[in-house]
Design a binder for these strands. Structure first.
Lengths: 134, 134
DNA sequence: TAACTGTATTATAATGACTAATACAGTTAG
DNA sequence: CTAACTGTATTAGTCATTATAATACAGTTA
């Protein structure tokens, strides 16, 4: 489900957060679906449970998951996500990428083509799970 | 020329790297133009010279600047930039951002509009400095 | 009851970021 | 030539963050 990249120098809990966000965003895990327990994922990745807990706590704060004591952690519905914060970060990140792409000589068309491809993929997976995303 | 953002929790040297990259990318500093000396910038930002040196060393490795002992550090020509590495990273970053944008309900048109704006700006500053970028 | 959940706490080790203080070698302007 | 500036290197020490370790408690579920 998730794999740690040792060549990535960011903190483990950040990597885990991003990987789980990715799974949610791509629709690999559906709304209200259970994600691995803190201890289970820790064992799977051979890292400390506290590190997983750290990631899950953050994800809950950002609205991506919700945790229920004695039951587990689950994917939240899209409406619970703190979109304003996410959007803010996304905006600057996206603009930065585009500037760099421009600088590196990537054509506008190529960027737009990439966007179209990704949106098409996302729409398809969204249909599979009757998700109103996109 | 550069300002430190205390609310940004990334390392100082990373911030400095990005700011200088930005200046180069946007054409605010031209090829072979001198950038502030290690000590000068350190004093300006009231941080340690070693931190600036760290940033400059990285930037040189990535091909954005070149440093000459006893003379200073200068903006490298575009051809020296390690484009393959940059492109690789850019590609995944861009794709990730687009996926997230899609997920957050941003329309394709809005992304494309942003791209157009940025490319227009960049082309203008590029014209000013007769730079063949974009 | 046993085995599983999330959650919390405390202590400790390890790593990375930053500062500080120097030092050396080379350039350049006065 | 000298003084003041450059990049570069080294060593040491501080500090914050990250990660681990070892427990503990409370609630669910088969």
């Amino acid at each position: 489900m998730i794999q740690i990249d040792l060549s990535d120098h960011r903190p483990l809990y950040e990597q885990i957060k991003d990987k789980i966000k990715e799974l949610i965003i791509t629709g690999a895990v559906a709304e209200n679906e259970k994600i691995p327990s803190v201890r289970e994922l820790a064992q799977q990745l051979t890292i400390n449970p506290n590190t997983i807990q750290h990631a899950y706590k953050d994800l809950e704060l950002e609205g991506f998951i919700y945790s229920v004591r004695a039951k587990g952690s689950f994917v939240a519905s899209a409406s619970h996500i703190k979109k304003k914060t996410q959007m803010q970060e996304l905006k600057t990140a996206f603009a930065g990428d585009v500037k760099q792409a421009c600088f590196l000589g990537v054509s506008k068309d190529e960027l737009i083509r990439t966007i179209n491809e990704i949106y098409r993929e996302q729409e398809m997976t969204a249909d599979d799970q009757s998700n109103e995303c996109c």
